[in-house]
Nucleic acid binder design. Sequence first.
DNA 1: GGCTAAGTGTAAATTAGCCGACATTTTGCT
DNA 2: AGCAAAATGTCGGCTAATTTACACTTAGCC
Lengths: 225, 225
Amino acid sequence: MYEELKYWYLRDHKLFRTLSFSQIKQLCIITGFKKASKGEIIYFSSSDVPRIFLLKKGNIKIVALDSNGNETIKDIIQKGDLFGELTLETDNKNEEYAKVLSDDVAICSFLMSDFEDLLLRNPTLALSYTKFVGLKMKRIKNNYANLISKDAKTRLYQFLKDWAEQEGVREENSVAIENYLTQNDIAQIICTSRQTATQLLNEMETNQLLNYNRKEIIIRDITKL
Amino acid sequence: MYEELKYWYLRDHKLFRTLSFSQIKQLCIITGFKKASKGEIIYFSSSDVPRIFLLKKGNIKIVALDSNGNETIKDIIQKGDLFGELTLETDNKNEEYAKVLSDDVAICSFLMSDFEDLLLRNPTLALSYTKFVGLKMKRIKNNYANLISKDAKTRLYQFLKDWAEQEGVREENSVAIENYLTQNDIAQIICTSRQTATQLLNEMETNQLLNYNRKEIIIRDITKL
DNA sequence: GGCTAAGTGTAAATTAGCCGACATTTTGCT
DNA sequence: AGCAAAATGTCGGCTAATTTACACTTAGCC
């Protein structure tokens, strides 16, 4: 790939806007770029050198295996999001991997050590990054707070609202979301059983709150959720 | 208070070890120091200038009020912890405050803007701080994961283990913890009802797993939890 | 010392939602 | 087209834990 293209892939993330071409290039920050398609699994395992990833296109889910071998969805990563060890701490024993949800994805990655060097030389970037991580923390906290204190229905409503806000195409009060999740995925995200999720979604459909199918979700009136 | 004392209060936090006396002083980073006693409420509200706090002594809980006016415990802060808007983002509409749990506490605070300046001039500190926030995030994530996937009993056991590890005084396999929490506090932390918490604690007592009273908790054999 | 409020103990009724056990539908593959 | 696998739909039993309700105990205060 042309260096310039690599550059732009990073450059259009708001974190990196303050950096010049030479800074990115000079620091050899782009060391990887890959494409993957639906269902593929991407390991960022401990065996490899620690990396930070940037999702340029598509959607993936971060999945962890618990001691019983059950999949748990840790996070849904969307276009423009950074993922991997954002804490800059190498974690030895985590059984996490990423699974591609959308038809195809494009992922940039760079070495954590390179990134650390860059942060050390660019205080402004370091500050931005700190705020970025902080923001992510806040989002996670809020999500979890919802999971714990609200019932399954409220959680589903909240999730749909968030999803609509992030990715939905609004027209008047109705919002269309490209649905790359299965009902099982949704259930896992809102921490409930698949059956309950199905039931709630169908209930919403009969109540004219939304139209659901495997390709698309249309929320009739987002203000009523 | 003598400048030197203020200096030491900050200096002995591991984050600030790399800074020189003049750096801390010069940047006027210490702008507040206060003591408070049990039950007192400390607001870090939106009206005031945004600050970051450092707990030098004692224990506090961070409490949020939900829409129904219910208290929810967001976090327990222990000696040496930073708290407040660690994300460096001013949050306009959060109804959080801190409540003193131990007999008395000592709190340092400094302006967020000053801290940001310091981070800009000290990339190493910025990096440490990012890792620090990241670590906190990881801890929170783990906690929440427990809250969601485990039952009340397991959550209580895990909480006690964590608490013991952080603050307990170990003697052979038994651990003594100074108990500054009510059963209601514990219940809120592990997200269950007060009654359930009471029941579980009593059950543990009859099973000889621990001795509980309002001043102290003694875990008979930490390896058996 | 006595009163009040906070904290603790206990029990029964109720319930959300998990789980198992299917049937049905859709999708992807050769 | 035809098959297998994945995804969705539906049901009732089951259980952990919340809720309600009230008695008892301890701590703090005048």
